[in-house]
Amino acid sequence: MSTRSLVLAVSSALLLVGIGCGGDDDPVTYDTPIKVTTSFSLNIDGQGLILGDAPNYTNSSGTMYSIKTLRFVITDVVLHSANASVKIADLHYYNVADPTTQSFQYTGLPHEEWTSVSFTFGLDETDNVRDKYASRTQFQLDMQWPENLGANLGYHYMQLEGNYATGPSTTAAYTTHMGPRQLDGTNPDFPGVTDATPYHFYFKVTLPFTPVHIHNEGRGELTINFNLNDWYKDSDPTDGVDSEYDFSDYPNQIIMGNLDAQGKLHSNGRFCFSADMVAIGGHHD
């Protein structure tokens, strides 16, 4: 090695050491805020969602059904790491008929190794208040809860609708609408029934995923997987409580305010979800 090469090598090594040592004590700064995009992957036991009239899916009771409408709301969506929890959405309203609702973004994640996401399916007592989200116009209009199921209760959690097979060539409609209930005795669907306090059927889920570190100038893609068939499957066959839900269990489909139906959906719903997160791009320096 020539003298010139030796000087160059030593200088380079010193420069690298210098950069490395300095970086240990200084706060890390990033060129751009880290962005995460959250989207939803809908499936029916692994089959993709195709909207239609003809029953094409089978629930755990063996009943064929189709899906024509899906709207739901999740609230308090939080990403978690060992050191931080960051709320990435207060409320997200999803409508299968409106592509603009099918993903959302958050910008400004700190540099962490993210391990899970949690959210409330529906709205809790604090949030499910009449007109609380009046400024979210389409959500307000689509998901409003009727006053005769709770004068001060605000919104549906979900509207899942379609047809189900009642025979080899006959169908009927189902309307799996979730939400709270409070009755004052005047509702013609529940004549004379009163509740001293409202019932709520929202639930919270925490969904772990393979830890992911989003490096500088990278972005995250969070996918919430939603298996719609799990609404109708007994969530825990060993717990002694049969929560299997078949459409024919409620032949008139008045399940808004039906404690049995809402209770089953409450039990089963938390098993509908899983999550994946990946980092896209980014670099370590």
């Binding site: 009239d53 024509k68 409408t69 609708e161 379609g162 047809n163 006959t170 169908t171 009927a172 409609a173 189902y174 309307t175 032949p251 008139n252 489909q253």
Partner: peptide, 17 residues
């Protein structure tokens, strides 16, 4: 009728009553 294309489930539900 249950065979109306794209009939809204909220309409068909009327048949239950």
């Amino acid at each position: 009728p249950t065979d109306i294309p794209n009939l809204d489930p909220l309409m068909l539900k009327r048949n239950n009553f």
